[in-house]
Every structure is written in C-alpha cells, then in structure tokens.
Design a protein around this nucleic acid. Structure first.
Lengths: 345, 345
DNA sequence: CTGTTAGCGCATTCAC
DNA sequence: GTGAATGCGCTAACAG
C-alpha cells in the first residue's frame, strides 16, 4: 500500500542506497541527485517505515515504556506529563502501560515491552513497592538488558536498579510534625496496607516525630490501613471518623485519599479545619481547588518524571528529591471540644 | 545480545521454522519436538522480537496511538484509562502522545505514528476541534490508510473520519436550562474561544434555552472566552466575577474551569451556591470532591474511550453518546440581594 | 510433521 | 558519489 524505499529509488532512477543516504544524510550526495530523490519522495508521499528501520540497527525503537498503576489517580498523570515532555524533547515516544495495580498485568506489560525492544522502562509504584511484591518483571527486564528505573517507593534489595523516590520516612515525619505543632495529640493515619514500603516508612517517620515530643508529652496514633482505591478509601475514612474518641489530626498517605477523606468528613457534618485537621501527601495540582485548600507535603512530581526519562536513557542525574510543605488551610488548632463532641452516623 | 530464533533452533536441533511454529501454534508440531523447542526457549530466555515480527505481515504493530492535548486536565486521563483498558483487552498497546494543545506537535505526532505503522489513531480534542484548525495531520493519516477517529468536538467537513462526540448544542442547552430553572436570568459563560466548535455550539444551545423562556421573560448573557489553560482561566474567572452587575448563574465549558472558577470566587469571598451558582461540563470523577459538589453535565467519558478503540479497530459501534445531569450542590436559587451586592477586589 | 527458501523495508558494508 | 550485495529476526509459502 504505502510507498517503500524501492519505489522511491525506481522513481528517481537511483539505487535504494542513495535514497537511504539522502534520508539520513550519512554520506554526501550530489546536489542534483539529492534533488531528484527529494522530488520522488515528495511525489510518492514516501515515509520510511520505522519498524523496518529499527531492525538492522540492532534494536532501539526510541520508545520508552511507562508503567503506572492507574491513569486516574491524579498523581500519575502529573508524572506522565513530565515523562512525555522529556521523552519528546529527547526524540522518544512513550508507551502507556496501565496495570490496574495488579502484578500479573505489570508482568505482562514488562514482557510486551521487552519483546518490543523498547529503549527503557519506567516503573511507577509497581509491585516493587510492595514488601512481598513479585520481582519477576524487573528480573526479566534486567536480563533483557533494558535500562529501567523504579519510581516512587522503596525498592527491595533484590532489584538492582536505580530508584527514584523521596524519603518516605522524612515525609511521615514532616506530616506528623506539622500536626503536632498545631497541638494535635490524637493522630489518625489513613493509608495503604503494611504491605507497602511507603506505609511502613511513613509510619516510621510518624513515630519518630511523636517520639520527639517534649518529655511528658504523649500522642496517640490510630491507623486505618487498607488501600488506595476509591471504595476502600471511603470505607476507611468512615471508620476512622467514627472512632471514639475521634482523632483530631488526620494524616493521609496521598492527596487523593485526603480529598476522599474530606468529602466523607463533610458528609458527616464535620468541618475542616474547625473540627478536624487534615494533611495530605503528593502535592498534586488539584489541591488548590479543594475546600479548604489542602495542606500537604509535595513531592517534585514533574522532576521525578523528567529524571526518570534521563535515567533510563543513561544520562547522569542527581536523584535528590526534595519534599516541600504546601500550606493550605486544612490544618488548624485542636478544637476545644474535641473530646466531648460525638459523631453522628 | 538477546537470543534470536536462530539460537533457539540451533539449541533445539530444529529449523527456525519449527521454532516459529511452536511459538505461534500455526501448524501442528510433534509433542516431543515441541517440548525440546520449549526447553530451548526457556533455557535461552528467548523472547521474540516484535519489531521483526511485524515486518513480514505488512504492518499492524498492534499499537494504537492516543493523541491528547494534555495529560494533566483530568478529563483526558479518564478517557485515556478507558482507551488503555479496551486496547489491552483487545491485545493492543497504547502510544501516548501529548500535544500541549499545539498543532505543530499534533502534526509531528501524526507523522511519527504513521511511520511506526500503528494500527489506528485516536485524536482527542485536536486541531480538528478548532474552526481554523490544521487538517494536515488527518489528511496524512488518511492517505497512509490508517484508521482514525476524532473524539470530542465537532469535525470539520473536510475530514472524512468517524467522529465521537456528544451533542454540544444540547449540552449548552441543558446547562442553561438548569440555571434558568433555578431562576437565574443573568447568565455568565466561561469557556474557550470562539475558534472552538464546542464554544460555538455550546453558546448556540445556551441561546436556544434562553429563547425558549416564557413570553415576556428575558435573560442576559455575559461571556468570558479565552482558553482552557489554568492561567488564562483564572484571569477570565476574575474578570467575570468583577462584572457589574455580576451574573448569578455561571456556566462553565469544563469541570476544570468550574473548579478554577469556584476557587477564584472563594478568594473573592463569594459563597456557592448562596451568592453564585455554577454548573460545569464533563462529569469528571473529581467533581465529587469539590466543595460544594459540582453540578455538571456529564459526558460518558469511559464509553467514549472504549468506543474510540473499537472504532479504529474497525468494529461496529453505536456512536450514540448520552449526556447526564449530575446534581451536585453548586446551583441554587438567585440570591435576593444579587443586584445590590458589590464585589470586593 | 518438518526443513528450505523467500522476502518484509531498510541501513550498511563493500567495490566501482 | 553511487550501486550491488548482505543481513536484521521473523513469517509464510513451498517442498519433502
């Protein structure tokens, strides 16, 4: 159907080698010849077949695989956007792989990307972020000699790959410290299960912050762990809200969780930050538009996407990722009647 | 580096054809032979090169190109998610192309996708959605004989391609009607420029709704058109809010615009829906988490993604897309002091 | 059932 | 400068 290099050669009365030359500018070609070829290309609307082009060169499809749990959680689009930008600037395309947070699909995608001989793979919050995660995908990719990088969450020791992640312990510490500073002593934690490294690290940080209170001071921690999915999160939020006594300062593992939580709190007639303080994590752009504006610890999401691309392309990077406190209006002082107020179900 | 089919053949003591056969199950192979080959494959960790595999068959890379303006506007991830799901179920992968809403990049991506011989291309809110949009990308794709579909917004007559879009006129009508029902007679419109078909159609619908008021009744319309980008939108929102008299019912071209608008309104000390009513468009999931929950007209975003995939794969679809009113709490009655109240800048 | 032989579209040595 | 020849990894006839 489409014109091939042979058609062009014939049309221009030259050999295919010459056509190839004018296309890639490998060797010098006499101006008039080059002209004739150019015209032939134009006339036939010829476009070189990238697939065929990749074959001789060994591999290198100039494609980067981006593997993420779900496109719908706003934190991933922000990373994806940066990945696409950087990839585009470097002349690469992005293969979008969504795993629905299921390891089997992640493995399947890893295989597909290997088979396609992509230039690199970026795994975001994959099974590696789970304590008992399946390391098979990464093993395969490594054996296939394809550069990859693990974004978000800690990598287990068995994966020898660059990791791009913020200090989750520090993150938990910052979140808790901020709540403690505002006088909260009954902290609630809403997050994923203990199977996730993030959860463990975050809790570690929280405990560190609580331990560093002045002597005599104590604080309690109520956890609701389960998952990041909307349904689960809604349930967890309700449960946390019906605790008695109810925590006054809530620390959420992600901004989306925080948003879900705030919505639930509202459903139950609680006001933020008057009755309840909330702090999130991620720093997605959407936090500007919540009410009240969410106070959160921001990761450099865009930077993470950019660095991930550079990393798999073998370019030197500084993997230092800073956390930033974004002050919204979702954290306030402890309500004076905190202990008395009951919850309406 | 990686093992090829030849290595496997040698290792198993058979011909490459036989290896190919056991891989694809094309022809029957004697069990013990198949076994030997399987072992060889396993032993060498062989994975067939998809690129090479595509060549003989003509094309068909089993890849679908998804071209969207930006990943960050929440409406696109929702479509993208559905596209990935459907593509995966059908054994296809998705190439993510972000244009930053720039025609030049859209064109560039169209070329890249053609060169890569993708199976189909899904253009979402592309340059075709603009009255003076550049039709070159679609022309090229058509000439390359690659199936494509235009999602969102109306296609100009010059593009002969399936279009997947809701009835924008009806949408505008629904939005306006809802506000009118609540007694609003001073309507504000916040949206993209007149260069977009959506804007034109939406305004057409708004006018239709306003025209169908009972005799003697009239309503006014104040427009702020400009763009969908965050910065622009913020400016437009402020301008709209400082009109005198200020419209009491605001109709936004997208949910994101509505969210931006509500945030601005809040900054100016206005309460929704007490002082101001707002209705959005798109029906993104995030509307559940705004405050107040946004009232909006929902498009079947997921369905659009699913149908888009089926469409480019040549499967029969019913392109009927229904609009649904999602009742939030952002629309209320006209404030009694609407005319008196001034705006603080 | 299985091995042999052509290409697929292109880049790349080589000679001329 | 340019053309002919070779091979990339694999599938698909075509023979045995």
């Amino acid at each position: 159907m489409a014109a091939t290099i042979i058609d062009v050669a014939r049309h221009a009365g030259v050999s295919i080698a010459t056509v190839s030359r004018v296309m890639n500018g490998t060797t010098a070609v006499r101006p008039d010849t080059r002209q004739r070829v150019a015209e032939a290309i134009e006339a036939l609307g010829y476009r070189p077949n990238q697939l065929a082009r990749s074959l001789p060169g060994g591999q290198s499809d100039r494609v980067i695989g981006l593997v993420i749990p779900e496109i719908n959680n706003p934190v991933f689009p922000e990373i994806a956007q940066a990945v696409e930008h950087e990839a585009r600037h470097q002349g690469y395309q992005v293969m979008l792989c969504q795993t629905d947070d299921r390891w089997a699909i992640e493995l399947k995608y890893a295989k597909l990307l290997i088979d396609r001989r992509v230039s690199g793979i970026i795994f975001v919050s994959g099974s590696f972020s789970h304590v008992k995660g399946d390391m098979e995908p990464y093993r395969l990719v490594r054996e296939a000699n394809i550069p990859y990088v693990l974004v978000n969450s800690r990598a287990s020791d068995s994966t020898m790959a660059p990791v791009l992640a913020t200090d989750e312990v520090a993150a938990g510490k910052m979140q808790a410290a901020y709540l403690l500073q505002h006088g909260h002593r009954h902290i609630g934690f809403l997050g994923g299960g203990l199977g996730y490294y993030v959860t463990r690290d975050r809790l570690l940080g929280v405990n560190q912050a609580m331990a560093s209170l002045a002597r005599g001071e104590t604080a309690s921690l109520t956890q609701q762990l389960g998952g990041f999915q909307q349904n689960r999160a809604t349930l967890l939020a309700r449960t946390l809200l019906t605790q008695n006594p109810r925590p006054t300062g809530i620390l959420c593992a992600s901004d989306l969780l925080a948003m879900i939580f705030m919505t639930q709190a509202r459903h139950m007639g609680l006001r933020i930050p008057d009755d309840l303080s909330v702090i999130g994590f991620d720093g997605i752009q959407m936090v500007q538009h919540t009410w009240p504006p969410l106070t959160t610890i921001a990761q450099p999401l865009r930077k993470m996407g950019t660095l991930a691309v550079k990393s798999v392309l073998g370019q030197p990077i500084n993997p230092r990722l800073e956390l930033t406190l974004i002050k919204g209006q979702s954290v306030g002082a402890v309500p004076s009647n905190a202990i008395l107020k009951d919850v309406a179900t």
